[in-house]
Nucleic acid binder design. Structure first.
Length: 791
RNA sequence: GCCGAAGUGGCGGAAUUGGCAGACGCGAUGGACUCAAAAUCCAUUGCCCUCCGGGGCGUGUGGGUUCGAUUCCCACCUUCGGCACCA
């Protein structure tokens, strides 16, 4: 028997797969009816090397890829690099090189790491965001969104990261900090580009019901979109002869509105105070309060000033004072509220601070009081009734508000796709014509951020003729957020070399939506929301024929080092070093055997050595079995049954349950059984089965053993099918309970009647001892499993 | 504050539809092989008691439903995650 040499075997089969392009997915032919499966894991940022978190992610995807291939699917399993953007650029700054050079070096390193892990990737479809052949179409899509009115430029308060020196999307501010670098984010007013994702808020919410995603992820998106159903109610300011609208989710409390509040940034402030005695004072407050940094504003100590004006409550005609206070936000609703201190905590605090009246309108039993003709109605029913009554008088309408904001995606950084527009003094903002794409990212010496976009100081890039009038124009100097690149990369994989269009609809429709997507839950409200938005928009324009990109989603857990997420450069845990030391197969088994793949793993190398031992033992036991004669077809021994049971368990675990640790345990059990029965007539069959079902986990050693068993091309061989007849046991262990406690176990033939089973139970001495002559109250029988005697 | 997820041996974890708690692996203990070690193999291994037959307890805590609960229900504790002056 040859000694098991992981490195020799792994290099050998990796070379074969490379030569054959074994995992290349064939393009769909028009009219073919192949079963297809699109398996995708989130693509890596090439800001360093792979770490064990990637190894978990991609090994899991690899098991699914092999399993689906071998169960008759044409599987698309591509790979690419999210190579534009902050992660890669910051890596370049850290290492003191140019982003292009650093990025491409990292891509080469990661590619090599991926090959050494033996992952079944279609290497002919590699896509990198920074390649002109890719960002050409990112720019093309930008123009399309612009043309469709789903992209706009606006001066708005945005999140500025003082460390990364760029604007951040709301999605990437966590607890007021930049999610990448942790710096406290500042509010700044800047002209920025936005995707109008809010236009799809409802669909993004409703269509969650159509996809198979973890509930917690749907919850995150639901919270983030933050839909509130309510009403818009008009309050009249008689002196000025104007109406002010407020949004409320509690129209049932309208009779309890005792004052009215306007946000300090609201343009209404000026209108309201014009000509009042304290106008200057109010304006001064509004100016200071409106400019206050967000963190300070969240201090919750209520501040505000009375405007001197009154609004009329449309339900009862009461005149209530209008205040300006910074606890009301301009961004949400209408920037003005009716305040009901009796039933809103914030309004209550404000009323307490400024001695404003409080009128309760809902009693303890949940019905309305002090509410005129609505008294006695149940609060929820009253909501509709009051809005109905008001709308008949033209003073209210049903309304919906969202928390979701438009996606700000322009970045004041170098390493990204240039935004293809030109500013012209005569024509304004002019899109670059499609025929002039791509707008190439110029090579600049000094790409570092300095508070203004680095491209702005490149005169050669900036100065361009206006595409519309031919006069002097200036290019947009901001670049696109890397999340724009990753919002459509999975579509490009379907048609990666298309030079005429981002993709051909026929190809995308054949593969999409993605059957299984795997990636970190940290992308729940960013990438996963943006991508859904992109697909919905493109579907509306007829570019593709589906409305959701990711049909099934799974989040792998983190690989933690000392309780923290692993980063790309942790000493001693580089996949390369581990492969050098233990071999790829052992690493692959190790990372999936640690526990359920959606659970965090505390990194410790201690678990790897046992997996190496298992692979060696597996190797030895299969070699011993190979010396045995072929197992006869339909061989029926306990070992044969164990093998069939293993097939059934592994298949069900991967296919239906989507768990990856227990199949390894099942194969270990089979190998243990086999090692105890080396002469069993089913020994060879058991060995073949173990090799076959372990192949998705350890493709190299299994391929080698498959060859040793006289077979070839396991990666292309059909997945084994368990013989149903041999899954049924003819003898079962019957559990005997007395009063619900296990007292004995006996082996009985399968399929006995209830009466026969009770007979066996009564015959047990141990059962008799516990029944101890007591009266049988009741006997519960679970056929082939259990008898419970209650005395 | 609102919403959600999770809590099982010394450790990672298993138990799929309410039916044998602890599969599989680690670690530990004892033994075989060896001059010795490594590797390998065998046995034991939830806790407590034991006259070695067995008995009691046990899945975060306290209740409940049930013949029977890690699994279902209620309350609570702890940890983690999302949202949060969002009207």
């Amino acid at each position: 028997m040859d000694r098991y040499d992981a490195h020799e075997i792994e290099a050998k089969w990796q070379a074969v797969w490379e030569d054959e392009q074994a995992f290349h997915a064939a393009d769909p032919e028009p009219g073919d009816d192949k079963a297809r499966f699109y398996m995708l894991e989130m693509l890596p940022y090439p800001s360093g090397q792979l770490h064990m978190g990637h190894v978990l992610n991609y090994t899991m995807g690899d098991v699914v890829t092999h399993f689906r291939r071998r169960t008759g699917h044409e599987v698309l399993r591509p790979m690419g690099f999210d190579s534009f953007g902050l992660p890669a650029e910051n890596a370049a700054i850290r290492e003191g090189g140019h982003p292009l050079e650093i990025t491409e070096r990292n891509i080469a390193t990661i590619t090599n790491q991926m090959r050494r892990m033996g992952w079944a990737i279609d290497w002919q479809r590699v896509v990198s965001a920074h390649e002109t052949t890719y960002y050409h179409w990112t720019q093309w899509l930008f123009l399309k969104f612009l043309e469709k009115g789903l992209v706009y430029r606006k001066e708005a308060p945005v999140n500025w990261c003082p460390n990364d020196q760029t604007v951040l999307a709301n999605e990437h501010v966590v607890d007021g900090k930049c999610w990448r670098c942790g710096a406290v984010v500042e509010a700044r007013n800047m002209a920025q580009w936005f995707f109008k994702i809010t236009a799809y808020a409802d669909q993004l919410l409703d269509d969650l019901a159509t996809i198979d995603w973890p509930e917690r992820t749907k919850k995150i998106q639901t919270n983030w979109i933050g839909r509130s159903d309510g009403a818009e109610v008009l309050f009249r300011v008689d002196e000025l002869d104007i109406d002010i609208a407020v949004f409320t989710t509690r129209p049932d409390t309208l009779f309890g509105a005792t004052f009215f509040v306007v946000a300090p940034e609201s343009p209404l402030v000026d209108t309201l105070v014009d000509g009042t005695a304290d106008a200057d004072e109010v304006r001064a407050y509004a100016r200071v309060a409106g400019a206050r940094p967000t963190e300070e504003r969240e201090q919750r100590e209520k501040t505000g000033v009375f405007t001197g004006r009154y609004a009329t409550n449309p339900v009862n005609g009461e005149r209530i004072p209008i205040w300006v206070a910074d606890y009301v936000l301009m961004e949400y609703g209408t920037g003005a509220i009716m305040a009901v201190p009796a039933h809103d905590e914030r309004d209550a605090e404000f009323a307490a601070a400024f001695a404003l009246p409080v009128v309760a309108v809902i009693s303890e039993d949940g019905t309305l009081v002090n509410s005129g003709e609505f008294n006695g109605q149940e609060a929820n029913a009253a909501k509709g009734a009051i809005v109905q009554w008001l709308s008949e008088h033209g003073r209210a309408k049903q309304a919906i508000n969202y928390r979701l904001r438009d996606w700000s995606f322009s970045r004041q950084r170098y390493w990204g796709a240039p935004i293809p527009v030109v500013y012209c003094e005569t024509c304004g903002i002019v899109p670059v014509p499609e025929s002039d794409l791509p707008v190439l990212l110029p090579e600049v010496e000094d790409y570092r951020p300095k508070g203004k976009p680095p491209l702005a100081s490149n005169e050669e890039f900036m100065n361009v003729a206006c595409p519309s009038c031919g006069g002097a124009g200036r290019r947009e100097a901001d670049t696109m957020d890397t999340f724009v690149d990753s919002s459509w990369y999975y579509l490009r994989y379907c048609d990666p070399h298309n030079a005429e269009a981002p993709f051909e609809r026929r190809l995308v429709d054949a593969w999409m939506p993605i059957d299984q997507y795997i990636g970190g839950i940290d992308h729940a409200k960013g990438h996963l929301l943006y991508s859904r938005f992109f697909v919905k928009a493109m579907n509306d324009w007829g570019m593709l024929g589906f409305r959701e990109p990711f049909q099934r989603l799974f989040h792998q857990g983190w690989v933690l080092l000392d309780g923290r997420k692993m980063s790309k450069s942790q000493a001693g845990v580089s996949p390369d070093e581990l492969v050098d030391q233990f071999g790829a197969d052992a690493i692959r088994i190790y990372i999936l055997f640690q526990g359920p793949a959606d659970q965090d793993i505390n990194w410790s190398p201690d678990g790897i050595e046992p997996m190496v031992r298992f692979v060696r033992r597996f190797w030895r036991v299969v070699h011993e079995a190979a010396a045995q004669p072929e197992s006869p077809a339909g061989v029926d021994t306990a070992l044969a049954r164990k093998a069939h049971e293993t097939i059934a368990r592994v298949t069900d675990d991967i296919d239906r349950r989507f768990v990856f640790n227990t199949p390894i345990a099942a194969v270990m059990e089979l190998v243990n059984e086999l090692s105890k029965k080396p002469d069993d007539p089913a020994a060879r069959f058991a060995a073949e089965t173990a090799v076959s079902v372990l192949q998705p986990y350890a493709p190299h050693v299994c391929e080698e053993l498959w060859g040793m068993l006289g077979k070839s091309r396991l990666w292309d061989s059909p997945w084994p099918v368990a013989d149903e007849a041999l899954l049924v046991h003819d003898e079962v262990e019957l559990v005997l309970q007395v009063n619900g406690k296990v007292r004995d176990r006996v082996r009985v033939p399968a399929g006995l009647s209830d009466d026969e089973l009770i007979e066996r139970a009564r015959a047990s001495e141990k059962v008799q001892a516990h029944v101890n002559g007591g009266d049988e109250q009741r006997v519960i029988v679970v056929p082939d499993k259990l008898v419970n005697i209650v005395v």
